[in-house]
Each structure stands twice: as C-alpha cells, then as structure tokens.
C-alpha cells in the first residue's frame, strides 16, 4: 500500500518561509501509525525531517502535531483513522514559534504550566505515614491527572491564538488538579493566580480543547469548576 504525506518543512537557518514537501511512501499498511510513516520518511527518504517523539505510545506527549488540520499525537493515530487514500497533511502545532519542521517552541506553554504551581503545597507538618485521601476525593482528580502535557489543547484554543497571554486550557486543567486535591493546602493561592483577565476569564467555552485532547479529558468541565469556585469565593 502507498500513502502520500504532505509535510510542512521549515529550517530557520536556510528558509525564509515554511513550505510543503510531498513524500510518496510505499510498503505501508493501514494499521501503521502516522509516527511509523514519519520514521520511514526520516530513515529512508529525508534525513533532515525533524519532529519530536519519545515513548511512541501516547504517554510522553512529545509528538503533538497538526494532522489533517487537527491537533493529534502522531503515535496514537492509525492511517485507517485518517482519510489516507487522499494526501495526509502534517503541520506543526499552530500558534507556537516553529523551531524546525514539525517541532515548535513550547517554552511559553511550560512557563504557563509553571505559573499555576503544578505541585502539592503543604504548610502543616507531615503526618507519621502519609497524607491520606479518600477514594471519592481521589476520583475527582483522576481525569485531570491523565494529562500528558502534549499541548494539543492549548494550541487549538482560539482564545490563545488571539491573546498569547492567556494561560490556556492545559495550565488551567493543572490548576484544577491541584486546587481540588484535598491534600493541597494552598488552593486560594492558586485561585488567585488563575483569577486574572488573562487567566481563566479568557476561556469562552469554545470546546476546541476537548476535541483536540488525545486523552479525551473534558477540559472545559474542569475549567468551569474553577470558575464556579471563584464565583463562590468572590460573590
């Protein structure tokens, strides 16, 4: 079987603008993942092709890219899930500076992640054994804890496209994950951080983030819980 990949290429050292290059790849199967095809192109057709990947199993979040116009993980999409008889188009995640080909600069994404203090903050002395949490309370965090920081959500958010200062869905999801953790002792601190005009209030429940998330996390619901907590606190 044969498949044609049209890939956006850009090398800042030699190119003035990005361009598309087509690769006709033979000997593939519809059960191949997009990442497998990329590996074949890089291995035997164009060694300069640049993309990130690490685990190749949807765990590390490295290979987020725009596949046929949607943000997805290359390692989690099979050719048969795409309209592969037509040309398959790959582009870097939108709205982030491109470092090379399919690799974008995620510094801003991580900076926002850091801003929401994505860790448990405790102020009291630790108990003898461990800080316990009930099953019910832990369950409230399971979905948000599935995030692998692939940036597919934040880079699909129209609010972030127009205002780069917006914290974005991934950082807000992380804020939920720790604010609603019963073991955390600084939820107010984190709520203060997200409660700014460029913080949570730029989310207009457009739902792009949910469609993009490879882990099928209902990000908007989690953001709405933070909004509710803020309204209850302020009004």
């Amino acid at each position: 079987m044969q498949v044609t990949f049209r890939i956006q290429k850009y090398n800042p050292e030699t190119d003035t603008t990005p361009y598309y290059k087509e690769f006709v790849v033979d000997g593939v199967d519809e059960t191949w993942r997009v990442l497998d095809v990329l590996e074949k192109i890089k291995g035997s057709m164009d060694g300069t092709l640049t993309y990130r990947r690490s685990c190749a199993h949807g765990v590390c979040g490295s290979d987020g890219m725009r596949i046929n116009g949607r943000n997805r993980l290359a390692c989690s999409i099979l050719l048969k899930d795409l309209n592969y008889r037509n040309v398959v188009t790959l582009e870097p995640l939108p709205s982030m500076p491109v470092i090379k080909d399919l690799v974008v600069d995620l510094s801003d994404f991580y900076k926002k992640y850091e801003l929401v203090k994505p860790y448990l903050i405790t102020k009291t002395n630790p108990p003898e054994a461990e800080r316990l949490q009930s099953n019910e309370d832990a369950e409230k965090l399971f979905e948000s804890a599935k995030c692998i920081l692939c940036a597919c959500c934040s880079t699909s958010c129209p609010s972030l496209w127009t205002n780069e200062n917006y914290l974005g869905p991934a950082a807000l999801l992380k804020a939920y994950r720790f604010t609603f953790d019963t073991r955390d002792e600084a939820p107010e601190e984190r709520l203060d951080i997200v409660d700014t005009q460029d913080g949570i209030w730029r989310c207009h429940t457009i739902f792009n983030c949910i469609e993009a998330c490879p882990k099928e996390i209902n990000i908007t619901w989690h953001i709405s819980q933070l909004k509710k907590a803020l309204v209850n606190r302020e009004i």
Partner: peptide
C-alpha cells in the same frame, strides 16, 4: 506578561 489587570474577573463574568 501573563497577568492582565489584577482584581477578580468573577463578578463581571457572573
């Protein structure tokens, strides 16, 4: 950079 005007946005949102 990531801070628009301070002051809660909750009342106006509500």
């Amino acid at each position: 950079k990531y801070y628009g005007s301070r002051g809660s946005g909750a009342p106006s949102w509500y």
